[in-house]
Design a protein around this nucleic acid. Structure first.
Length: 217
DNA sequence: TTAGGGTTACAA
DNA sequence: TTGTAACCCTAA
């Protein structure tokens, strides 16, 4: 352990983030072998990548706890697989880490109480429940609003205007980066290619929005 | 090869 | 002295 510490450069950190986005968390060897990244990361081992990713998640969660980093890392493993010719994920509109706070069933309470801030953390109770729902549903391509709503209705006793609240909250969480909003375009392959080339903007009826916790690869 | 826990170097 | 980041060790 006498080796001098080799501080990570911003280029290396960027390469690691790119690698994780591309290959997924845990595929450190694959990231290292990526021709686009290998030159930047040539002085790093797969263990270095793993450790750095852990540290980066500690920083992001601002908790200083390795345990929280671990949960963050675990949650980033799910990745959408585009194996359907008639539907594809076109856009990931936001991406950020988050934290999980305990969410136990509660009795029916007012919308204000659902939305009330729980502690020094800025998360509301509903935020946590939504995160828990998406996490537990564990759908590879994320979960649709109605699926999330059904889960919460099964597990909890939401207020009458819950559906409206949920929509607003999902929008908030996506815009703040706590959730990833994925736009899935239900269209033939040719249309998808036009979308990718930005030559065709799908109608609202041709798209659906799925919400996902964590990062894609 | 990876995850997770432990250790050490370093900066504030 | 303390917290953080980098590095090391080991089990699976």
């Amino acid at each position: 352990m006498g080796a001098p510490k080799q501080r990570w450069t911003s280029e290396e950190e960027a390469a690691l983030r790119t690698g994780v986005a591309k290959h997924g968390v845990g595929n450190w060897r694959t990231i290292l072998n990526d021709p686009e990244l290998s030159s930047v990361l040539r002085y790093r081992s797969n263990v270095d990548l793993k450790d750095k990713w852990r540290n980066m998640n500690v920083t992001v969660t601002a908790s200083g706890s390795r345990d929280k980093a671990r949960t963050a890392v675990k949650r980033t493993r799910a990745a959408p697989k585009n194996n359907d010719h008639s539907a594809a994920i076109i856009t990931v509109t936001s991406d950020a880490d988050d934290e999980i706070v305990d969410a136990k069933p509660i009795a029916s309470v007012s919308a204000e109480a659902w939305n009330a801030s729980t502690s020094k953390k800025s998360h509301s109770r509903l935020d946590n429940i939504i995160m828990e729902a998406i996490k537990n549903l564990n759908e590879p391509t994320g979960s649709h609003r109605t699926t999330i709503a059904n889960y919460i209705e099964e597990q909890y006793w939401p207020p009458s205007d819950f559906d409206h609240l949920l929509s607003a909250k999902l929008k908030d969480l996506a815009s703040s980066g706590k959730l990833i909003k994925v736009i899935v375009i239900l269209a033939p392959y040719s249309i998808l290619m036009l979308c990718l080339c930005k030559k065709y903007k799908p109608f609202k009826s041709e798209t659906t929005r799925w919400y996902h916790v964590g990062k894609f690869n």
